[in-house]
């Protein structure tokens, strides 16, 4: 470090003042208290969004101030945002399956053979049944 002279000015590193750090810490503790304080109450469907919202607020404070992303090179902000975006993609697309798993259950429970047999029975019982033939399997 002996011969480092002109580099420091070029850095322009932001020094976060101690009062700011303490204020953020106070806010984090307060948000934690709110999170814990709310937990005995049954918020119904809002429980998860409220808890996640509070956690996100805390995380944002940590990322912006403690991790100094607010004062940092924008590319780091972009990097972090892309990371968060892809977590969201992962979550949403997986839940798109698991939350709707089995949504094909409303299709006919009969097998094709059973349906054909049923069709034959209908045709035998009713001369006008030909008018009801709509699906390709009916035509056989």
């Amino acid at each position: 470090m002996a011969h480092a002279t002109d580099d420091h000015a070029a850095h322009g590193h932001h020094i976060i003042p101690i009062p700011t750090l303490l204020k953020v810490f106070g806010a984090l503790v307060a948000l934690t208290a709110i999170t814990v304080g709310l937990s005995p109450f049954d918020l119904g469907m809002f429980e998860i969004p409220v808890a996640l919202g509070l956690a996100s607020a805390k995380a944002t404070l940590v990322v912006m101030i403690f991790m100094a992303l607010k004062y940092d090179n924008p590319v780091n902000m972009l990097t972090f945002s892309v990371g968060v975006l892809f977590v969201a993609i992962f979550l949403v697309f997986t839940l798109l399956d698991t939350a709707f798993r089995g949504d094909m259950d409303n299709v006919d429970r009969l097998t094709i053979e059973e349906r054909e047999r049923l069709n034959e029975q209908l045709q035998e019982s009713d001369v006008d049944a030909e008018d009801l033939q709509v699906a390709p399997s009916d035509m056989q």
């Binding site: 993609i89 697309f93 798109l96 399956d97 698991t98 709707f100 949504d103």
Partner: peptide
């Protein structure tokens, strides 16, 4: 490329809606 992984799973039993989106 991150939004299409479910097309490997069309016959796995995943939900129809996700199959369609993927």
């Amino acid at each position: 490329g991150f939004l299409v992984w479910g097309h490997h799973m069309f016959v796995s039993g995943q939900s129809a809606i996700s199959s369609i989106v993927f």
